[in-house]
Amino acid sequence: MGSIHLKQVTKDFGDVSVIKPIDLEIKDGEFIVFVGPSGCGKSTLLRMIAGLEDTTSGTIEIDGQDATTTPPAKRGLAMVFQSYALYPHMSVRNNIAFPLKRAKINDDIIEEKIASVAKTLNLTDYLDRKPGQLSGGQRQRVAIGRAIVRQPSAFLFDEPLSNLDASLRVNMRLEISELHKSLNTTMVYVTHDQVEAMTMADRIAVFNGGIIEQVGSPLELYNNPANRFVAGFIGSPKINFIDIEPSTIDGTCSLGIRPEHIEISTTGGQWAGKIGVIEHLGSETFLHVHVDGHDTFTVKTSGDCPFKYGDEIYLSPQKNKLLHFDATGKTLPNIA
């Protein structure tokens, strides 16, 4: 069991309100990812769930029980920190055993559990090393091992992969997803990384300035962002925005079009532009096109793109994929 229910939760640091009232229901077994720009309060909310920060107002329910003032040790949650936060003076074995010992579990069972966790995470050969003698990826695995060994009702991850290099990050990402599938335990995962959010999440919560802009499955957010902020935040490369004269029909002030929803033509189209930087990724190509009277457009096209720097081309949006935003940034129904 591991459902977490936030009701009108807020957090102030002195006079600064870091979390505006937030409501969020995290279902048992769900993998939910918090994303958002730096300083928007993701870590703070995670730490509030963990009990490492006080909740200024509102209630946090874990498994239906009010846990707002429960100390972290009693919440039955496990956390994996960005810095791993391993106990440097203990061997890997003792790091993993630590939560079990605190729970006064008998030594034989501890041994058994360590062995099985070590096997799952490929740590068997390192059990007697100190964290200082491990690589970043191994440390990360120990941190995860320490979290899973006591079978918490939910896992909290705060940017657990951001200290790893790119290829390791991909591996660990898969391992964590795998783990989620096999354990079927609730995971709350904070990240900066688009790809992590999109690939791992059952649902993504997009944060901005202490509020949640939108919660939904990755594709929901991608295809139907609730507002301009979410549209701009989800998707890589970023969506293109076009400011227009406010429409008299529905009040549209700006449009958004994702890079893969723009058609290219050498003969004619809605916007005339000149190709700037071209990024070849092999399987696909990103063109940065300077359009008169607008910002630079990013356009995604196939890997075998024939254009070169300075070429004049025409761009047209796929009309049914255009997103319409009103003056406040809210998404309007696409009437096209």
Partner: peptide, 8 residues
């Protein structure tokens, strides 16, 4: 940083 508990 800290909770009421630890602050007390």
């Amino acid at each position: 940083m800290a909770t009421t508990n630890s602050r007390a």
